[in-house]
Design a protein around this nucleic acid. Structure first.
Lengths: 128, 128
DNA sequence: CCGGATCCCAGGGGATACTG
DNA sequence: CAGTATCCCCTGGGATCCGG
């Protein structure tokens, strides 16, 4: 299970590295997680959950584990009761920041254009 | 069905535009399609299929339709027999090129690091 | 506090067969 | 040639309940 992305890579890495990026970064909460860790430096599991507006614990755990397995995030467990677990970006994880920034930039551009187009449509419909 | 992405946008655009980009660009064949159209300018349905190493016609059709609905691709039908359909990038579609380039760049970086890590592991195992 | 175990569901991708 | 129609399957996200 640890080798999921690794297997993907082995199969068709050189053919399309774009898919690799999407496979690694494309989880439902992964971009947000990476951006939050980039912004805050270190965050505990619970803090992440609250900042993300409470995804299911199971889901958040999985996203974080996958990011850890893929080497983007470093998980530190403090052996104490109650438990305390901290997450922070690895160097590789930090290297993904420009990609996320680019995705955000284009996403904003796209949304703007779509809203503009929708407004035009509405106007055209009103003028008819 | 046409408004799928549009609805997504309306719901949580401003919160995370990154997700929008992934929703629009994240299809199984979409990055490759966009890059091929960027490179070749104009391509017919069949040409695209061959260059992509034959995805199912149904799948390719859906990917192209979604890209068209999202305004990234322009579809031109020539009313003749046998049919001829051409695809090319819209301005918006062309604007996605840097994003794809960035994804490819980081995907390559990631793959390289992973391979290096795997090699280290193998070496460590051999030395044990 | 930080999860693991179990169950469920939607939908995206694919195979196959057919058509204007 | 460029699709459409049907069917299947698997994955990823989520809800709920339980545990150290």
């Amino acid at each position: 299970m640890r080798e999921k992305t690794a297997r993907i890579i082995h199969e068709w890495a050189d053919s399309c590295d774009t898919e690799v990026s999407i496979a690694v970064l494309g989880g439902a909460w992964k971009p947000s997680i990476l951006m939050l860790l980039d912004e805050h430096g270190v965050l505990r599991f619970g803090e992440l959950g609250r900042l993300l507006q409470d995804p299911t614990a199971r889901v958040l755990t999985r996203q974080l584990r996958e990011l850890e397995d893929d080497g983007l995030v470093i998980r530190t467990v403090y052996p104490q009761v109650p438990p305390k677990v901290e997450y922070r970006l690895s160097e590789l994880g930090a290297s993904a920041t420009p990609v996320l920034a680019e995705l955000t930039r284009w996403g904003t551009l796209y949304s703007t254009r779509q809203r503009a187009a929708a407004a035009e449509d509405a106007e055209a419909a009103a003028t008819m």
